[in-house]
């Protein structure tokens, strides 16, 4: 039984890894690099906190 479980573990790992690779490819080909890397540190902070006491 344990050997069967280990084969199932390998198979499940392969399926999930393949799904992530596929989604990565799909995402990178659907959206532009400018959109994907548009996150900026502190934007929401700048909008809500002015640090004026």
């Amino acid at each position: 039984m344990w050997f069967t479980l280990s084969y199932v573990a390998w198979a499940l790992s392969a399926v999930l890894a393949a799904w992530m690779l596929f989604d990565w490819f799909k995402t990178d080909t659907t959206y532009s690099e400018d959109v994907l890397t548009s996150s900026r540190e502190g934007e929401i902070e700048a909008a809500t906190e002015k640090h004026k006491l």
């Binding site: 280990s6 390998w10 790992s13 999930l16 890894a17 992530m20």
Partner: peptide
């Protein structure tokens, strides 16, 4: 816990890391 001769940990190690990476993704 399995106590089965010849059983190696690799499959379970890989499964742990990949499932959690998927969840985080």
């Amino acid at each position: 816990v399995a106590g089965t001769e010849g059983l190696e940990r690799h499959a379970f190690v890989v499964l742990t890391i990949v499932v959690l990476a998927w969840l985080n993704y």
